[in-house]
Design a protein around this nucleic acid. Structure first.
Lengths: 352, 352
DNA sequence: TTGTATGCGTTATCAA
DNA sequence: TTGATAACGCATACAA
């Protein structure tokens, strides 16, 4: 009854043709094939050119990047180390980065650290051994030494989201300070009397630090009572958030009040907890936060959207520029956020 | 006042040490270093070993994967082609795959096609030129020829989410048929008189096809009036969805009715549209769907959750197994879905 | 226990 | 216009 598909599948196992195979098939030397491949076409005799075209088509030949990398030191691989691949913020950046690097012949080696400095370290080494031509990283901040080593080897390193002051690398992120200010001005305008800033522990994470200190600076300059209403909670420990939120709700009872969430993860946890505690948003409590997850419009949450896609684009463009031009003075790209007002931040109703 | 940091940064530019540098520093031959690197340690004299350890540490030497790849034909790169990197379904799979491959020394080359067959094709070639050792792909279904070529070169190819019947590849996905059946049994139990299946165009996408035909088969076997209530809508065109939903709402007026969304994207669009049209869920219309996005608990949507992380794990395990054992009979992994009942699918209240 | 020589697939140098 | 040869960094067969 003939061979089964399985047999057929099993029997193949052809190895890929090399430049030598093409040379043999075309009846010319490897050098000539290489010339053809590298666009040195004008120099070839028409007949030769034809033979090469045929041979390549016949053999379905494709040059090996690996061999090329070894030869000329470029891998056409860009490393991308992210803190949390399942976060929409991350994937939007990734998509932006990818859309820029693909047309330039580069591919993305994606590494997910889950915010673990050790994993990050492993990945830096792994990427280095793969001879990456550049690196985009949302760093935990605990591997600066290794990042500097990379940069020392002339490999462009661009930081996204998280900035490390001591490191003289390009940085791309939303303009946290301006965005936070803008949001607070809006909230003050809406007459909020108590504003609580909820964040995961800020230590070492510049985006959180920047948002937090902008928050404090603005309120301080207004002499606002909520200067001290900053809650750093570890979401790994579920009771922390509940205790903090309850604390704020008690101390702010009777006031026009709001929670400002440092990012979408915090926003989601606050929403879930509020629901669980029977707290109505915005009736009992208003809500605003960074990021613009796809459920924000559904629930009518006011947010500060980040230009995530553009962050990825900008970071990758910077890597490519450095690849072309060599060392450049590090610079700090601050992209504007966008305040999107929805129903979760109503103005104060006096004497309602 | 001394060199600026910029100058320092610029002046570095050391190239990475090679095995020869280590050999020279340690005063032994490359072969000996290579032995050391490849775990052939027992055979070495203690003094030699020490010298090598020192030399490697001094030079901060790291072997070049590129050179190794060229030498022994393995790149330790696994390609991962996904349809939509911004979809949480995708990233959960990615995370699962990555967590398996990392401890085995492999890295992930991630490619996002945006469902474009041409981009997919480009990526297949790109990955091939990078000598990937394996490929996990959610294929558009339009590059079967090239996928087969890969497989012919002994490169493990595993399909996730989308199956291609003519292709004899391993496949990993949720058990769409059983999951759909289970959900429908539940819905019938809840007394739904009209059930509409909303999907993006199914053509060529096996997951959609499987869900749709399971839907039809179950209802047909029950002689249920909704056998024909299947809506294929193109979400790129906003009016299509609205027209379809209005159509269903009219034809089902007065009945206990529900929309069954083929996936989270559709679910989100239905929710948004319902909100926009002032349709209350579940008062005016019930809702259920595949996938379990993080906003589903917030809105109380009943869903069929997919074991996404596990799909990634399984796919990668299969790739690695093939890498160890060579050709295997292709098999079809069907992982169970989980029905998560929430508030969006209430039972019928008679004579309310 | 260690070293020499060769080759992986490419490109660059030099020569013809 | 084309080709022979060496080199990229590493691993291995074979010697010593």
């Amino acid at each position: 009854m003939g061979k089964s598909n399985f047999d057929v599948y099993k029997s193949e196992g052809v190895k890929r043709p090399t430049i030598s195979d093409v040379a043999r098939t075309a009846g010319v030397s490897k050098t000539t094939i290489s010339r053809f491949l590298n666009g040195n076409v004008e120099v070839l005799a028409e007949g030769t050119r034809q033979k090469i075209v045929r041979a390549i088509a016949d053999l379905q030949y494709q040059p090996s990047r690996t061999a090329r990398s070894l030869k000329d030191g470029r891998s056409f691989l860009i490393g991308m180390i992210v803190a949390d691949i399942t976060n929409p913020y991350t994937t939007a950046i990734l998509r932006g980065a990818e859309n820029i690097c693909k047309p330039n012949g580069y591919s993305l080696l994606v590494c997910n650290t889950d915010n673990d400095p050790l994993k990050e370290r492993d990945y830096i080494f792994m990427l280095q051994s793969h001879q990456i031509d550049g690196l985009i990283i949302a760093t935990t901040g605990h591997n600066n030494e290794f990042l500097e080593r990379l940069a020392g080897n002339e490999i462009p390193v661009v930081l996204v989201d998280r900035k490390i002051p001591e490191l003289h690398f390009d940085t791309v992120s939303v303009d946290n300070q301006t965005a936070t200010q803008q949001a607070l001005f809006y909230l003050l305008d809406q007459g909020y009397e108590r504003i609580a800033f909820f964040t995961e522990p800020v230590y070492g994470v510049s985006s959180r630090e920047e948002r937090m200190s902008a928050f404090q600076a603005v309120l301080r300059s207004y002499g606002h009572p909520s200067v001290a209403d900053v809650f750093q909670v570890n979401l790994k420990n579920p009771v922390e958030l509940e205790a903090s939120l309850r604390g704020f709700l008690e101390s702010s009872a009777g006031y026009h009040r709001i929670v400002f969430a440092v990012n979408a993860v915090m926003l989601l946890h606050i929403e879930l907890l509020a629901q669980q505690l029977g707290i109505q948003i915005p009736k009992d409590l208003s809500l605003i936060g960074f990021d613009n997850p796809d459920w924000a419009p559904l629930l009518g949450i006011t947010v500060i959207a980040q230009p995530t896609y553009q962050i990825g684009v900008t970071a990758m463009e910077r890597v490519l520029l450095r690849l072309q031009q060599g060392p450049l003075r590090p610079s700090d790209f601050r992209l504007p956020g966008t305040l999107i007002v929805r129903d979760s931040t109503p103005g104060q109703v006096r004497g309602g």
